[in-house]
Computed example of a mutant assay.
Amino acid sequence: MDGLDSTDSENALPEFTPTELREMESLLKEVGEKSPSRDFCQELATRFSCSTDRTGKSAMKWEKVRSWFQDKQKELAAKVTKPKGERIAGLSGLLFEAQSSKDGGWFDVSSFLNFRILRTGTLEVRVRFAGFGKEEDEWVNVETGVRERSIPLESSECHWIHVGDLVICFRESDDDAIYCDAHIVKIHRRLHDVRSCRCIFVVRYEDNEAEEKVRLDRLCCRPK
């Protein structure tokens, strides 16, 4: 069996040491989507070449450094854009609600106007809230601030709600009147009259842990 010659042996060795890889991984977060400049890569290659970790190894070339960053950026872009694009396409066929960053309330979505991907990989959509003008449009995190629309209930459907359920509850204060996330902590079932549900639901709001007794007409349940 023929052995590897000196050139093959050198090419078979890892191009970067573990220390160099750790430093570049850290710098990659700062570089983001920008193409690294020649000066940046040259400075990094020179520092690597002078390091004691590279004793006995060939000097690092700036082209190798730039190639590493470009390959990593392509890998990250492939991971982010494909599933996110599919996620955006899936928003068109359903009814949604989105959480406003201004007051934390949930509002029905009239339309999704645009989307963007932040350097962190976070997907955001530009939302037009139902019943509001363009001056109230907001960028909303898709993962945490957009979901299928909650369901208002008829008086005969109160049996759908159980202790422990997540609901949205209409809450009024001196400052605002919004639908907030809350959990059902207790239910007082009562006989209905001919017009409405008379049951009392004790809710605990997620944002401030306050509890309140409410009627069914202030609640919407989450899709199962």
Rank of each mutant, 00 (worst) to 15 (best):
R204T: 13
W68F: 09
P223W: 02
V194N: 09
E15C: 09
F96Y: 05
L94A: 05
A45E: 10
D71S: 14
G105S: 02
I200Y: 06
D103G: 02
F112H: 06
G133T: 11
E148S: 08
E97A: 00
D8K: 12
V194H: 12
R54A: 05
Y179R: 00
D5I: 06
F132A: 04
R222M: 08
R116N: 13
H159Q: 14
D175C: 07
F107M: 00
G93I: 10
G145I: 03
V65H: 03
H192N: 10
L91K: 03
D8G: 13
I187H: 02
F201T: 00
R47G: 09
G85N: 08
V203Q: 02
K34R: 10
K213R: 15
E124S: 07
D108E: 05
K72L: 11
S35L: 15
M1S: 13
R195D: 10
A130F: 06
S150V: 01
R215V: 04
K74G: 11
F107G: 00
V194D: 13
H183I: 07
T55N: 09
Q42Y: 13
F96K: 00
D103H: 05
S6E: 13
L118P: 01
T122H: 07
D39K: 15
D137N: 11
E63H: 07
L44R: 09
V185F: 08
V194F: 10
D193C: 03
S111W: 08
V167I: 09
K74L: 14
E206G: 13
Q42C: 09
R128E: 06
C220R: 03
E138L: 01
G121K: 05
V167Q: 02
H192M: 08
E143L: 14
L216P: 00
P14A: 15
I88K: 05
R147F: 03
L91P: 01
A89N: 06
L166D: 14
F40K: 06
V31Y: 08
C180Q: 06
T122S: 08
S35Y: 11
F40N: 05
V167D: 02
A78S: 13
A130I: 01
R54L: 06
M1E: 13
V109M: 00
V31E: 07
R66H: 07
